[in-house]
Amino acid sequence: MKKIFLIGALLASAITYADELTPLMPADPIAYNKLRDFLINDDKKVFLDQGKSIIIGSNMVGPVTPAELYKDYERNELAANKIYKGKTVRLIGTAEEIGEDALGKPYI
């Protein structure tokens, strides 16, 4: 009974404060929805492919910032290639824009 009460209280508070979350919505909801759909579809594909993801793969490097990646290549391209080439690189940072290209594909 306590669990049901707790779930009800959480739902009620979420509904109460939903209007305050509106500023957190992206400026371009269409691009956001396409990106969300892409990530969801990738998640489904990962499940069907026994865990091989473009987001979290077995051949992943990082996280690194774009500036760190650039510096590594600027310092020594051959050494950076040994670290990054042929691998999925996990970048961290703040996205300045989410949109879609001329073909309608989402980008960050």
Rank of each mutant, 00 (worst) to 15 (best):
M1L: 12
K2W: 06
F5G: 10
I7W: 06
A9T: 13
L10R: 10
A12R: 04
A14P: 05
A14L: 15
I15Q: 13
T16F: 15
Y17C: 03
Y17L: 11
Y17V: 04
D19T: 12
D19K: 15
L21D: 10
T22Y: 15
T22M: 13
A31R: 05
N33C: 05
K34Y: 07
R36M: 07
F38L: 14
D42K: 07
D42W: 07
D43Y: 09
V46C: 01
V46N: 01
V46M: 02
F47W: 11
L48K: 09
L48G: 01
D49A: 08
Q50H: 13
G51D: 00
G51R: 02
G51C: 01
S53C: 05
I54F: 04
I55S: 08
I55D: 06
S58D: 00
N59F: 02
N59G: 02
A67T: 12
L69C: 03
K71E: 01
E77R: 15
L78N: 07
L78F: 05
N81M: 13
Y84T: 05
G86L: 08
T88P: 02
T88G: 03
V89Y: 00
R90I: 14
L91V: 04
A95H: 04
E96Q: 09
G99S: 10
E100F: 11
A102H: 12
L103V: 05
G104R: 07
G104Q: 06
